[in-house]
Amino acid sequence: MTTYKFQTVERDSVFTRLDFRSKILIMIVVTLLAFLWEDPIYEAVLAVLVLGACLAAGVKRGYITLLLAGMSPFYLFMLLTHAFFNVAQAERLLAVSNLHPIFTLPADLWLIGGLEATWEGFLYGANVMFKTMSLTLVIPLAIFTTDVDEMISSMVHARVPYKLAFIFSSTFRFSPLLWSEFNKIVAAQRLRGMALESMGLMKRVRVYARVVVPLILSALVRSQQLEVVLQSKAFNGDADRTYFHEVQMEIVDYFLISILFLFSIAAIYLRVQFGWGKFSVWF
Protein backbone atom coordinates (compact mmCIF):
# COMPACT_ATOMS: atom_id res chain seq x y z
CA MET A 1 0.00 0.00 0.00
CA THR A 2 2.21 2.74 -1.24
CA THR A 3 0.16 5.84 -1.07
CA TYR A 4 1.67 9.14 -1.75
CA LYS A 5 0.37 12.37 -3.01
CA PHE A 6 1.63 15.86 -3.31
CA GLN A 7 2.74 17.00 0.11
CA THR A 8 0.28 19.83 -0.16
CA VAL A 9 0.34 22.08 2.87
CA GLU A 10 -2.76 22.09 5.02
CA ARG A 11 -2.18 25.52 6.50
CA ASP A 12 -3.82 28.55 4.98
CA SER A 13 -1.19 31.23 4.60
CA VAL A 14 -0.27 34.13 2.38
CA PHE A 15 1.51 31.58 0.20
CA THR A 16 -1.51 29.43 -0.41
CA ARG A 17 -3.50 32.51 -1.36
CA LEU A 18 -0.93 33.81 -3.81
CA ASP A 19 -1.51 33.14 -7.47
CA PHE A 20 0.71 30.43 -8.87
CA ARG A 21 2.20 32.90 -11.34
CA SER A 22 3.47 35.04 -8.45
CA LYS A 23 5.05 31.97 -6.94
CA ILE A 24 6.74 31.12 -10.20
CA LEU A 25 8.18 34.59 -10.16
CA ILE A 26 9.44 34.05 -6.61
CA MET A 27 11.20 30.94 -7.88
CA ILE A 28 12.76 32.83 -10.75
CA VAL A 29 13.94 35.72 -8.56
CA VAL A 30 15.42 33.46 -5.89
CA THR A 31 17.25 31.55 -8.61
CA LEU A 32 18.52 34.77 -10.09
CA LEU A 33 19.78 36.05 -6.74
CA ALA A 34 21.44 32.77 -5.91
CA PHE A 35 23.37 32.96 -9.14
CA LEU A 36 24.09 36.67 -8.83
CA TRP A 37 25.67 36.67 -5.41
CA GLU A 38 28.80 34.99 -4.11
CA ASP A 39 28.95 36.52 -0.65
CA PRO A 40 28.35 33.78 1.94
CA ILE A 41 26.40 36.17 4.19
CA TYR A 42 24.08 37.27 1.40
CA GLU A 43 23.55 33.67 0.43
CA ALA A 44 22.96 32.64 4.04
CA VAL A 45 20.33 35.33 4.49
CA LEU A 46 18.60 34.24 1.29
CA ALA A 47 18.62 30.58 2.35
CA VAL A 48 17.29 31.39 5.80
CA LEU A 49 14.54 33.52 4.30
CA VAL A 50 13.45 30.76 1.96
CA LEU A 51 13.61 28.17 4.76
CA GLY A 52 11.63 30.46 7.04
CA ALA A 53 9.04 30.98 4.33
CA CYS A 54 8.72 27.22 3.88
CA LEU A 55 8.12 26.73 7.58
CA ALA A 56 5.69 29.64 7.71
CA ALA A 57 3.77 28.21 4.76
CA GLY A 58 3.49 24.88 6.55
CA VAL A 59 5.66 22.72 4.30
CA LYS A 60 5.95 19.49 6.26
CA ARG A 61 9.03 19.35 8.45
CA GLY A 62 9.57 15.72 7.51
CA TYR A 63 9.90 16.74 3.90
CA ILE A 64 12.42 19.48 4.70
CA THR A 65 14.40 17.11 6.88
CA LEU A 66 14.47 14.46 4.17
CA LEU A 67 15.62 17.03 1.71
CA LEU A 68 18.37 18.52 3.88
CA ALA A 69 19.48 15.10 5.08
CA GLY A 70 19.71 13.88 1.52
CA MET A 71 21.78 16.88 0.61
CA SER A 72 24.05 16.90 3.66
CA PRO A 73 26.80 14.66 2.22
CA PHE A 74 26.99 17.06 -0.66
CA TYR A 75 27.11 20.08 1.64
CA LEU A 76 29.88 18.51 3.69
CA PHE A 77 31.82 17.67 0.58
CA MET A 78 31.53 21.25 -0.65
CA LEU A 79 32.69 22.73 2.65
CA LEU A 80 35.66 20.37 2.93
CA THR A 81 36.91 20.55 -0.62
CA HIS A 82 36.68 24.30 -0.73
CA ALA A 83 38.30 24.68 2.69
CA PHE A 84 41.26 22.53 1.69
CA PHE A 85 41.67 23.18 -1.98
CA ASN A 86 40.07 26.42 -2.98
CA VAL A 87 43.14 28.60 -2.73
CA ALA A 88 43.80 30.08 -6.15
CA GLN A 89 40.22 31.13 -6.76
CA ALA A 90 39.74 32.58 -3.29
CA GLU A 91 42.95 34.53 -3.57
CA ARG A 92 41.91 35.88 -6.94
CA LEU A 93 38.40 36.84 -5.87
CA LEU A 94 39.60 38.54 -2.72
CA ALA A 95 42.75 39.95 -4.35
CA VAL A 96 44.95 38.78 -1.49
CA SER A 97 48.03 36.58 -1.54
CA ASN A 98 47.70 34.62 1.68
CA LEU A 99 44.66 33.12 3.32
CA HIS A 100 43.77 32.58 6.99
CA PRO A 101 44.44 28.97 8.03
CA ILE A 102 41.98 27.05 10.19
CA PHE A 103 44.22 24.04 10.83
CA THR A 104 46.75 21.85 9.09
CA LEU A 105 46.53 18.10 8.85
CA PRO A 106 49.48 16.26 10.47
CA ALA A 107 52.29 15.84 7.94
CA ASP A 108 52.59 12.06 8.45
CA LEU A 109 49.08 11.28 7.11
CA TRP A 110 49.17 9.36 3.86
CA LEU A 111 48.30 11.40 0.78
CA ILE A 112 46.50 14.22 2.58
CA GLY A 113 49.22 14.94 5.16
CA GLY A 114 50.13 18.61 5.45
CA LEU A 115 47.00 19.91 3.80
CA GLU A 116 45.85 23.24 5.12
CA ALA A 117 42.24 24.30 5.52
CA THR A 118 41.56 28.00 5.09
CA TRP A 119 38.75 30.19 6.37
CA GLU A 120 38.33 31.84 3.00
CA GLY A 121 37.99 28.52 1.21
CA PHE A 122 35.56 27.32 3.85
CA LEU A 123 33.42 30.43 3.44
CA TYR A 124 33.38 30.03 -0.32
CA GLY A 125 32.14 26.53 0.27
CA ALA A 126 29.48 27.93 2.58
CA ASN A 127 28.40 30.27 -0.20
CA VAL A 128 27.95 27.32 -2.54
CA MET A 129 26.10 25.39 0.14
CA PHE A 130 23.60 28.18 0.88
CA LYS A 131 23.12 28.83 -2.81
CA THR A 132 22.05 25.28 -3.51
CA MET A 133 19.95 25.25 -0.33
CA SER A 134 17.93 28.24 -1.54
CA LEU A 135 17.45 26.73 -4.95
CA THR A 136 16.27 23.45 -3.46
CA LEU A 137 13.93 24.91 -0.87
CA VAL A 138 12.21 27.40 -3.12
CA ILE A 139 10.61 24.56 -5.06
CA PRO A 140 8.47 23.12 -2.26
CA LEU A 141 7.65 26.67 -1.22
CA ALA A 142 6.07 27.37 -4.57
CA ILE A 143 4.67 23.98 -5.41
CA PHE A 144 3.31 22.56 -2.19
CA THR A 145 1.35 25.68 -1.45
CA THR A 146 -0.60 25.31 -4.69
CA ASP A 147 -3.44 23.01 -5.59
CA VAL A 148 -2.58 21.03 -8.71
CA ASP A 149 -5.66 22.11 -10.56
CA GLU A 150 -5.03 25.71 -9.70
CA MET A 151 -1.60 25.17 -11.17
CA ILE A 152 -3.15 24.01 -14.41
CA SER A 153 -5.55 26.92 -14.60
CA SER A 154 -2.73 29.33 -13.79
CA MET A 155 -0.54 27.80 -16.42
CA VAL A 156 -3.26 28.17 -19.01
CA HIS A 157 -3.80 31.79 -17.98
CA ALA A 158 -0.06 32.30 -18.24
CA ARG A 159 -0.34 31.10 -21.86
CA VAL A 160 1.23 27.73 -21.19
CA PRO A 161 -0.29 25.52 -23.92
CA TYR A 162 -3.19 23.55 -22.49
CA LYS A 163 -1.74 20.28 -23.73
CA LEU A 164 1.39 20.78 -21.65
CA ALA A 165 -0.60 21.70 -18.57
CA PHE A 166 -2.70 18.63 -19.11
CA ILE A 167 0.31 16.34 -19.42
CA PHE A 168 1.61 17.81 -16.18
CA SER A 169 -1.55 17.03 -14.23
CA SER A 170 -1.94 13.58 -15.77
CA THR A 171 1.63 12.66 -14.97
CA PHE A 172 0.88 13.64 -11.43
CA ARG A 173 -2.13 11.38 -11.50
CA PHE A 174 -0.35 8.34 -12.93
CA SER A 175 3.08 8.40 -11.32
CA PRO A 176 1.89 6.93 -7.97
CA LEU A 177 0.38 4.10 -9.93
CA LEU A 178 3.68 3.38 -11.61
CA TRP A 179 5.58 3.66 -8.37
CA SER A 180 3.40 1.04 -6.74
CA GLU A 181 3.70 -1.05 -9.87
CA PHE A 182 7.48 -0.77 -9.66
CA ASN A 183 7.35 -2.22 -6.16
CA LYS A 184 5.08 -5.02 -7.28
CA ILE A 185 7.51 -5.96 -10.02
CA VAL A 186 10.43 -5.96 -7.60
CA ALA A 187 8.41 -8.27 -5.34
CA ALA A 188 7.59 -10.53 -8.28
CA GLN A 189 11.29 -10.85 -9.11
CA ARG A 190 12.14 -11.70 -5.52
CA LEU A 191 9.49 -14.36 -5.73
CA ARG A 192 11.46 -15.87 -8.56
CA GLY A 193 14.50 -16.36 -6.47
CA MET A 194 16.09 -12.93 -6.78
CA ALA A 195 18.08 -12.53 -3.57
CA LEU A 196 18.07 -8.76 -3.30
CA GLU A 197 19.35 -8.92 0.26
CA SER A 198 22.73 -10.29 -0.69
CA MET A 199 23.52 -8.19 -3.70
CA GLY A 200 26.21 -5.65 -4.34
CA LEU A 201 25.58 -2.27 -5.91
CA MET A 202 26.37 -3.29 -9.47
CA LYS A 203 24.08 -6.30 -9.35
CA ARG A 204 21.30 -4.25 -7.87
CA VAL A 205 21.69 -1.76 -10.69
CA ARG A 206 21.09 -4.57 -13.15
CA VAL A 207 18.09 -5.82 -11.22
CA TYR A 208 16.48 -2.40 -11.10
CA ALA A 209 17.15 -1.86 -14.77
CA ARG A 210 15.38 -5.16 -15.46
CA VAL A 211 12.40 -4.05 -13.40
CA VAL A 212 12.03 -0.95 -15.52
CA VAL A 213 11.40 -2.95 -18.68
CA PRO A 214 7.99 -4.41 -17.74
CA LEU A 215 7.16 -1.10 -16.09
CA ILE A 216 7.64 0.89 -19.29
CA LEU A 217 6.00 -1.72 -21.49
CA SER A 218 2.87 -1.96 -19.39
CA ALA A 219 2.76 1.83 -19.10
CA LEU A 220 2.80 2.16 -22.87
CA VAL A 221 0.25 -0.56 -23.45
CA ARG A 222 -2.05 1.05 -20.92
CA SER A 223 -1.46 4.44 -22.45
CA GLN A 224 -3.27 3.27 -25.54
CA GLN A 225 -6.27 2.56 -23.31
CA LEU A 226 -5.80 5.95 -21.74
CA GLU A 227 -5.98 7.57 -25.15
CA VAL A 228 -9.34 5.87 -25.72
CA VAL A 229 -10.54 7.03 -22.31
CA LEU A 230 -9.53 10.62 -23.02
CA GLN A 231 -11.38 10.68 -26.30
CA SER A 232 -14.44 9.14 -24.69
CA LYS A 233 -14.38 11.97 -22.18
CA ALA A 234 -14.67 14.50 -25.00
CA PHE A 235 -11.04 15.53 -24.65
CA ASN A 236 -9.51 16.99 -27.77
CA GLY A 237 -6.47 18.85 -26.48
CA ASP A 238 -8.12 22.14 -27.26
CA ALA A 239 -7.63 25.00 -24.80
CA ASP A 240 -11.10 26.22 -25.70
CA ARG A 241 -12.92 24.65 -22.78
CA THR A 242 -14.30 25.79 -19.46
CA TYR A 243 -12.40 25.54 -16.17
CA PHE A 244 -13.78 24.30 -12.91
CA HIS A 245 -10.98 25.98 -10.97
CA GLU A 246 -10.83 29.71 -11.41
CA VAL A 247 -7.75 31.73 -10.73
CA GLN A 248 -7.42 35.41 -10.42
CA MET A 249 -4.54 37.74 -9.63
CA GLU A 250 -5.28 39.73 -6.48
CA ILE A 251 -3.83 43.05 -5.40
CA VAL A 252 -1.33 41.24 -3.22
CA ASP A 253 -0.07 39.43 -6.32
CA TYR A 254 0.43 42.61 -8.28
CA PHE A 255 2.11 44.17 -5.27
CA LEU A 256 4.47 41.24 -4.82
CA ILE A 257 5.31 41.07 -8.49
CA SER A 258 6.25 44.77 -8.56
CA ILE A 259 8.38 44.40 -5.43
CA LEU A 260 10.19 41.40 -6.89
CA PHE A 261 10.84 43.23 -10.12
CA LEU A 262 12.21 46.33 -8.41
CA PHE A 263 14.31 44.28 -6.04
CA SER A 264 15.86 42.23 -8.83
CA ILE A 265 16.77 45.28 -10.83
CA ALA A 266 18.25 46.92 -7.77
CA ALA A 267 20.24 43.81 -6.89
CA ILE A 268 21.70 43.54 -10.37
CA TYR A 269 22.56 47.23 -10.45
CA LEU A 270 24.24 47.12 -7.05
CA ARG A 271 26.21 44.02 -7.95
CA VAL A 272 27.47 45.41 -11.22
CA GLN A 273 28.03 48.98 -10.13
CA PHE A 274 29.20 48.64 -6.51
CA GLY A 275 30.07 44.97 -6.19
CA TRP A 276 27.39 44.28 -3.56
CA GLY A 277 27.20 40.57 -3.05
CA LYS A 278 30.57 39.67 -4.53
CA PHE A 279 32.63 37.14 -2.60
CA SER A 280 34.10 38.79 0.48
CA VAL A 281 35.10 37.99 4.04
CA TRP A 282 34.87 40.23 7.05
CA PHE A 283 38.34 39.69 8.42
Binding site: D149, R173, F244
Partner: peptide, 19 residues
Protein backbone atom coordinates in the same frame (compact mmCIF):
# COMPACT_ATOMS: atom_id res chain seq x y z
CA UNK B 1 -6.97 2.71 -12.82
CA UNK B 2 -6.53 3.93 -16.38
CA UNK B 3 -9.94 5.46 -16.79
CA UNK B 4 -9.67 7.98 -13.98
CA UNK B 5 -7.62 10.79 -15.44
CA UNK B 6 -7.84 13.57 -12.87
CA UNK B 7 -6.00 13.89 -9.58
CA UNK B 8 -9.06 14.27 -7.40
CA UNK B 9 -12.62 13.00 -7.28
CA UNK B 10 -14.27 16.32 -8.06
CA UNK B 11 -11.88 17.07 -10.89
CA UNK B 12 -12.67 13.72 -12.43
CA UNK B 13 -16.32 14.71 -12.65
CA UNK B 14 -15.41 18.20 -13.82
CA UNK B 15 -13.07 16.96 -16.56
CA UNK B 16 -15.65 15.80 -19.08
CA UNK B 17 -17.86 18.80 -18.34
CA UNK B 18 -14.96 21.18 -18.93
CA UNK B 19 -14.23 19.49 -22.23
Amino acid sequence: ETQIVAASVENEIAFILEN
